[in-house]
Amino acid sequence: MRTELVSEPGDPDRPNEDFAAVVLPASGQGGALVILDGVTPPRDGTGCLHSVPWYVARLGGALTELTVSRPDVPLAGALARAIARTAEAHAEACDLSHPRTPQATVVTARWSPETVEYLVLSDSALLVESSEGSVTAVLDDRLSRLPRSALATDALVDANVRNKEGGFYTAAADPSVAERAVTGTLPRATVRALLGMTDGATRWVEKFREGDWADCFRFVRKEGAQALVDRVRELERRDAEKRAYLRRSKTHDDASVVYAEL
């Protein structure tokens, strides 16, 4: 089995708000990958004493452990338990009802000798290569389908669309959000490899239009996960002044990539 993992902060002077892991249980009968992208908080606070990296480390660690230790629990159930466990760790000291309580996007996949399960929540991505070589992008596109007017300000987003019906969802403090994730199960024999990415890495496709999802998958398989992040950084630097592609987005974002050949 070949696996690769890369996670780089957008700014070396700021903590990386991503989490990335790939695990191979001692049984040797399968594995899992977990990727979280912490939501950068607004300047006026989150109602929480803890940082986004603290939250992402807690949630990512809990989810990684649960995907391995409880193979009998579906991934949505594992995510719900991980969210609940993380919420319990700071519920007494923090306002978990605040719309910007620390939160994250989630991608996870788990494989056994029989199946490959997957879960995607919010705007990170999972690419699945079939045994025949075709590539399918598993996406939660609710955020991208919202009108720009709904996303004009943080206040509008928090009041109307963040973790609300008709809007988009992230993993925050409410375990029930796990049921909103995009999930599925595939026969193991039909899956050759998986590629999970936070949106700092999916910029290769979604902002800079270097190719489609299949092109992105082939690039990582040939050149490696680090090469994808390096290419995104190069494109960001080129566009930093004119912002033809980046527009109002931050110049550099945390970028994580996990690649696993099954």
Rank of each mutant, 00 (worst) to 15 (best):
Thr3Lys: 09
Pro9His: 12
Pro9Leu: 04
Phe19Arg: 07
Ala21Asn: 01
Ala21Cys: 11
Ala26Phe: 01
Gly28Glu: 01
Gln29His: 14
Gly30Glu: 02
Ile35Asn: 06
Asp37Phe: 06
Val39Tyr: 09
Arg43Gln: 07
Asp44Ser: 13
Gly45Ile: 05
Cys48Gly: 04
Leu49His: 11
Leu49Phe: 04
Pro53His: 01
Pro53Trp: 04
Trp54Glu: 09
Trp54Ile: 08
Leu59Gly: 02
Leu59Pro: 09
Leu63Tyr: 03
Thr64Ile: 00
Thr67Pro: 03
Ser69Leu: 09
Arg70Cys: 09
Val73Thr: 14
Val73Glu: 11
Val73Ile: 14
Val73Gly: 01
Val73Gln: 09
Pro74Ile: 12
Gly77His: 06
Ala78Arg: 07
Ala78Met: 08
Ile83Cys: 01
His90Asn: 10
Ala91Val: 14
Ala91Gln: 14
Asp95Asn: 13
Ala104Asn: 05
Val106Ser: 08
Ala109Thr: 01
Arg110Pro: 07
Ser112Ala: 10
Pro113His: 12
Glu114Trp: 04
Val116Pro: 04
Val116Thr: 15
Val116Leu: 11
Tyr118Gln: 09
Leu119Cys: 08
Leu119Gln: 07
Leu121Trp: 06
Ser122His: 15
Ala125Leu: 15
Ala125Phe: 06
Glu129Arg: 15
Gly133Asp: 09
Ser134Gly: 12
Ala137Lys: 03
Asp140Ile: 07
Asp140His: 14
Asp141Asn: 08
Arg145Tyr: 00
Pro147Leu: 03
Ser149Trp: 00
Ala152Glu: 12
Thr153Phe: 01
Asp154Ser: 10
Lys164Ile: 02
Glu165Ser: 11
Glu165Leu: 13
Ala172Ile: 02
Ala173Asn: 07
Pro175Cys: 12
Ser176Leu: 11
Ala178Met: 08
Glu179Tyr: 00
Arg180Glu: 13
Ala181Met: 03
Thr183Asn: 01
Thr183Ile: 12
Gly184Trp: 12
Thr185Ala: 14
Leu186Trp: 12
Pro187Met: 11
Arg188Thr: 12
Thr190Ser: 15
Thr190Gly: 13
Arg192Tyr: 04
Arg192Gln: 14
Glu206Phe: 06
Phe208Gln: 08
Gly211Met: 08
Gly211Leu: 04
Asp212Ser: 05
Asp212Val: 06
Phe217Leu: 11
Phe217Ile: 07
Phe217Trp: 06
Arg218Lys: 07
Arg218His: 14
Arg221Leu: 09
Gly224Ser: 09
Gly224Pro: 03
Asp230Tyr: 05
Arg233Met: 11
Arg237Asn: 14
Arg237Tyr: 00
Ala240Gln: 14
Tyr245Asp: 02
Arg247Met: 04
Lys250Phe: 03
Thr251Lys: 04
Thr251Arg: 11
His252Phe: 15
His252Asn: 15
Asp253Asn: 07
Ala255Gln: 09
Ser256Asp: 06
Val257Ile: 13
Val258Arg: 08
Ala260Leu: 09
Leu262His: 01
Leu262Arg: 10
